[in-house]
Computed example of a mutant assay.
Amino acid sequence: MEVKTDTKEKFHVIRVETLNFTAIMAAELNRQLLELLKDNTKNVVVNLQGIANMEEEAAESLVRLQQKFYEEGASFVICNLQKNVESFLDEKELLEIMNVTPTESEAYDIVQMEEIERELLNGDDFDQ
Rank of each mutant, 00 (worst) to 15 (best):
A58R: 01
D127K: 09
L65N: 06
K8A: 07
A52F: 11
L81Q: 00
Q112D: 12
E86W: 00
M25S: 14
L62F: 01
L62Y: 05
E28Y: 14
E86Q: 05
E57Q: 14
E117T: 14
V13T: 04
N99S: 13
K10V: 04
I97H: 14
D127R: 10
V111W: 02
K83W: 01
N40E: 15
D109P: 10
E114R: 00
L120A: 11
I51K: 07
V100F: 08
F88E: 12
G73W: 07
E35I: 04
S105D: 15
L48P: 10
I110Y: 05
I51V: 07
G123A: 08
T22V: 01
E71G: 09
D6L: 04
T101I: 12
F76Q: 09
A59K: 04
T103E: 05
K8R: 11
F76P: 15
E117K: 13
A58Y: 08
L120N: 06
E56N: 13
N53I: 13
Q128W: 07
L37W: 05
A74K: 05
E9M: 08
N30Y: 02
L94I: 00
G73Q: 05
S105A: 06
L121P: 04
E114W: 04
M113Q: 15
E9P: 01
F126L: 11
E117A: 14
N30A: 01
V44P: 15
V77M: 07
E55V: 00
Q82V: 02
E114D: 07
E28L: 08
E104T: 04
N122Q: 13
N40V: 14
L48A: 02
F76N: 10
C79E: 03
Y108S: 09
E104M: 00
E56D: 12
H12P: 07
L121I: 11
M54V: 14
T103S: 07
E114G: 01
I116N: 03
F11L: 01
L121K: 11
I97N: 14
V13D: 12
E86A: 06
E60G: 08
L95Y: 12
T5D: 15
E91K: 09
F69H: 04
A27Q: 07
Y108W: 06
C79I: 02
E91N: 13
A74D: 09
I110H: 02
K10D: 07
N122S: 15
I110M: 02
L121T: 12
E96S: 13
S87Y: 04
F126V: 11
V3W: 15
E60V: 02
V3A: 13
E91D: 15
Q66F: 11
V16R: 08
Q82N: 01
L65Q: 04
T103K: 02
S75M: 03
E104L: 00
N43I: 00
L94S: 04
K4G: 07
N122C: 13
Q82E: 03
L89I: 11
K42N: 10
T22Y: 03
K83D: 03
V13C: 02
E57M: 06
A107Y: 05
K68Y: 13
F69R: 01
R15T: 10
M98P: 14
S61H: 02
L34I: 01
L34S: 02
E35D: 12
Y108I: 09
T18A: 12
E9H: 05
E9W: 08
E35A: 10
